[in-house]
Write a protein that binds this DNA or RNA. Structure first.
Length: 577
DNA sequence: GCCGTTTTCGGCCCGACTGTTTTCAGTCG
C-alpha cells in the first residue's frame, strides 16, 4: 500500500464526513492526506520500522488517523471506513472529481436516484432526471454532462508528469539487467508530449527472456497482456499500458526513430526517403536490399540529408525544413533553469515554510526562488494584503541575511480582478522583486472581455510575469477564452513576461503558445507553481514544454544568473528587451 | 481529528459565485 493509496482512503473519509455534516474532521483528513501524499517518507516503511509513533511524526497524523493507517496497512481497512462505505456505497472520489459536484450533492444523488458511479450520473443526466431533484436544475444537469464529457475526452491519456517518473525508473532498472546494452523509452514520452497514451521501451540485449521476466515482475504491473521474447505488454496499476520491445542492436537507431514518432513526422520522413528511391522502416534505411544506415538515429537522418531533430519537435511542423537547411533551433537544455519564480508557502495555501521551500530548492541545485503567495481577494487561501506582504518581506530579509549562497526573492501571485485591475496597490507591488498575476475568478467571460481584462492587467507598470495564462487544468477545467495571440503581442508591447507553469495538470502556456511567444520575441519564465517541496522537481516538465515550443535558453529569463535576472526585473517595463 | 512558549481545551482560512432560491446551500480555491 503506497502513500497515494492511503491518501486516497483518507480523502474518501473526508468526503464521507462532509456528507455526514461532521465539522472539522473533513479538513483534518484532507490535511493528513495531503501531508502523506507529499511526504518523502513511505508510510508503510515508517510503520514497519517505528509503529504508530513513527506515523504520528507525519504532520496532520495523530492518534486517530495513525490507528486508521495501521488498520489499512495490516488489514486493508478499518471499521469507520467500512461503516461509511457501507452507508454510501458510491465511487465518491470519481463523482466529486466532476466540477460543481461535491460530497453533499453526491449524497443527494445517491439517496434520490441511487447514483453510485459516473456512468449512473451520465445516464440520469441524459434522461433528464437530475433536474427533478429539489435544489437541482437544468443548468446543473447540463454542467454535470459537460464535466463528464471533459473527463472522457482526457480518458486513456495520462499526464506526462505522472508517467515520466515511472517510465524512467523502468528504463533504468531494465538497463541494469545483465546482457542489456540499450534500454530507452520511445514514443510520446520521449517527445515529452503533455499527455501520454502508453509507455514504449526499446531494448537491445543478448538475453531477451531475462529482460521480459524482469519487466513483468515490476511491482507497478497489474496484469500481463502479452509475454513474448520480442514484445511484452502489460497493464500497470494505474491503467496505463506498457510495452517492451527487444530489437537487434544493429538496427537500434532505426527502431528508435520509428517508435519515437510522431506519426506525422515519420510520414514526412518516409516520403523523403521514397523521393530519393529509398525505403525507411524500423529496421533501417534501404536502397533495395542494401541497408544504408540503422545503427543510430543520426545515421538514419544523415542518409536523408537531415540533421537529427530533438524528439520534442518531431511534429511535422517545420522541423524537417529546418533540419534540411541545418537551421534547427538550439533548444533550452534540461536542468538549465536556475530559479523558480512561482512558489507558494504556508503563508497561504502552500504546505511548507519559506525556509523549507528555499532549502528544498537549494538542494535541487537551484540558485534562487521567488515566494509568490496568493493575495487578498483569494480569501480561501488566506491571501496576503499589503501589510502581510510587508511582514513576509521581513521574514525573507532575515532568511537572506544568513549566508547560504541562495537567494529568496520577494514576490506575489496577485489576482487579476474582473476589470483587469490588480488586488494589491502599486506602492506595495513596487517593493517586490517579482510580481506575477493570474486570473482566479470570472473564468467564463467572453473572449473579448477576458482578453481585454488580461491585457489591462499587463499594462500595470509593476506586473512582471503573467502566471498560468490560460488557467486550464487538464481534464478538469477548460482554459479561459482568450485571444492568446493578442495577449502575447501585448506581453511584447508592455514588457511583460509570460509563464510556463510546469505543474503536471496545468502545463500552461502550452507548446503552441510558447512557439508563438518565441517567434514574437516575448520573454518566458518557467515555474513549478509548487505548493510543496516535492513539487519543485517539476521544473524540467516546463523545460520540456519550452523545448516543444522551440525555445532557446535566451528566451527564458530564469535561466539567467540572479544578477542578470534582477537587472531585467529592475528595468522599467517599456525599456525591457 | 489535530494541534499548542499565548492554550492539553478550544480553536480550526473564508469570501465570491452560482443556481436555486424567496433567503441560502453547495462548491471552489
Amino acid at each position: 500500500m503506497t502513500n497515494r493509496d492511503i491518501a486516497a482512503v483518507l480523502r474518501e473519509m473526508a468526503l464521507y464526513y462532509e456528507m455526514e455534516g461532521v465539522a472539522f474532521k473533513p479538513a483534518a483528513y484532507e490535511a493528513a492526506a495531503d501531508s502523506i501524499e507529499s511526504s518523502g517518507l513511505d508510510a508503510a516503511t515508517l510503520y514497519e520500522e517505528g509503529g504508530r509513533p513513527a506515523l504520528k511524526k507525519i504532520p496532520g497524523v495523530g492518534e486517530g488517523i495513525s490507528h486508521h493507517i495501521e488498520g489499512l496497512l495490516k488489514r486493508g481497512g478499518f471499521p469507520e471506513y467500512r461503516r461509511l462505505h457501507k452507508k454510501y456505497p458510491i465511487d465518491v472520489l470519481t463523482l466529486t472529481s466532476i466540477e460543481d459536484l461535491g460530497p453533499k450533492r453526491a449524497k443527494v444523488l445517491y439517496q434520490k436516484l441511487k447514483i453510485k458511479t459516473l456512468h449512473d450520473l451520465e445516464r440520469a443526466a441524459t434522461a433528464g432526471k437530475i433536474r427533478t431533484i429539489p435544489g437541482f436544475g437544468v443548468k446543473t444537469e447540463e454542467k454535470f454532462l459537460k464535466g463528464i464529457a471533459l473527463k472522457k475526452s482526457s480518458h486513456g491519456r495520462y499526464l506526462l508528469g505522472h508517467i515520466l517518473p515511472i517510465a524512467t525508473k523502468m528504463e533504468e532498472e531494465l538497463r541494469r539487467v545483465s546482457g542489456v546494452k540499450h534500454a530507452v523509452v520511445a514514443g510520446s514520452i520521449r517527445r515529452r508530449q503533455e499527455t501520454i497514451g502508453d509507455i514504449d521501451i526499446l531494448v537491445t540485449t543478448s538475453q531477451p527472456e531475462k529482460v521480459m521476466a524482469v519487466f513483468v515482475g515490476f511491482p507497478e504491473v497489474a496484469e500481463v497482456l502479452e509475454h513474448g521474447p520480442t514484445k511484452t505488454t502489460v497493464r500497470l496499476q494505474n491503467g496505463c499500458q506498457a510495452d517492451v520491445r527487444v530489437i537487434a542492436d544493429e538496427s537500434f537507431g532505426a527502431a528508435l526513430q520509428y517508435f519515437t514518432g510522431s506519426k506525422e513526422h515519420n510520414v514526412v520522413v518516409r516520403k523523403m526517403a521514397i523521393a530519393k528511391g529509398l525505403k525507411l522502416n524500423e529496421y533501417g534505411i534501404w536502397r533495395g536490399r542494401k541497408r544504408l544506415a540503422a545503427k543510430t538515429e543520426e545515421d538514419v537522418y544523415k542518409v536523408l540529408g537531415l540533421s537529427a531533430m530533438p524528439p520534442e519537435i518531431r511534429t511535422a511542423s517545420g522541423e524537417i525544413e529546418a533540419a534540411k537547411k541545418n537551421r534547427l533551433p538550439v533548444l533550452i537544455p534540461y536542468g538549465s533553469v536556475r530559479g523558480d519564480l512561482q512558489t507558494q508557502t504556508s503563508w497561504t495555501d502552500g504546505e511548507f515554510s519559506i525556509a523549507e521551500m528555499a532549502a528544498a530548492a537549494q538542494a535541487l541545485g537551484l540558485e534562487y526562488i521567488a515566494v509568490t503567495d496568493h493575495t487578498r481577494s483569494l480569501a480561501m487561501t488566506g491571501g496576503l494584503d499589503e501589510k502581510k506582504l510587508w511582514l513576509q518581506g521581513r521574514e525573507i530579509d532575515a532568511l537572506n541575511a544568513k549566508p547560504s549562497g541562495f537567494t529568496i526573492l520577494k514576490g506575489a501571485e496577485v489576482n487579476i480582478m474582473k476589470d483587469g485591475s490588480l488586488d494589491i496597490d502599486d506602492e506595495a507591488l513596487k517593493k517586490l522583486d517579482v510580481v506575477g498575476a493570474a486570473v482566479h475568478s470570472h473564468f467564463k467571460l467572453s473572449r473579448a472581455e477576458q482578453t481585454a481584462r488580461v491585457i489591462a492587467a499587463m499594462k500595470n507598470p509593476h506586473l512582471d510575469v503573467l502566471f498560468h495564462p490560460t488557467g486550464r487544468i487538464i481534464g478538469r477545467r477548460e482554459p479561459i477564452d482568450l485571444d492568446i495571440e493578442a495577449v502575447i503581442k501585448a506581453a511584447k508591447a508592455t514588457g511583460t513576461a509570460v509563464e510556463i507553469d510546469s505543474y503536471p495538470d496545468r502545463s500552461d502556456l502550452r507548446d503552441s503558445h510558447v512557439r508563438m511567444a518565441v517567434e514574437l520575441g516575448v520573454k518566458l519564465v518557467i515555474d513549478t507553481d509548487a505548493h510543496a517541496t516535492a513539487h519543485l522537481k517539476y521544473l524540467d516538465l516546463g523545460v520540456a514544454i519550452a523545448r516543444r515550443g522551440w525555445a532557446s535558453t535566451s528566451d527564458v529569463l530564469n535561466t539567467r544568473p540572479l544578477a542578470e535576472l534582477l537587472r531585467w526585473l529592475r528595468t522599467p517595463k517599456n525599456k525591457r528587451k
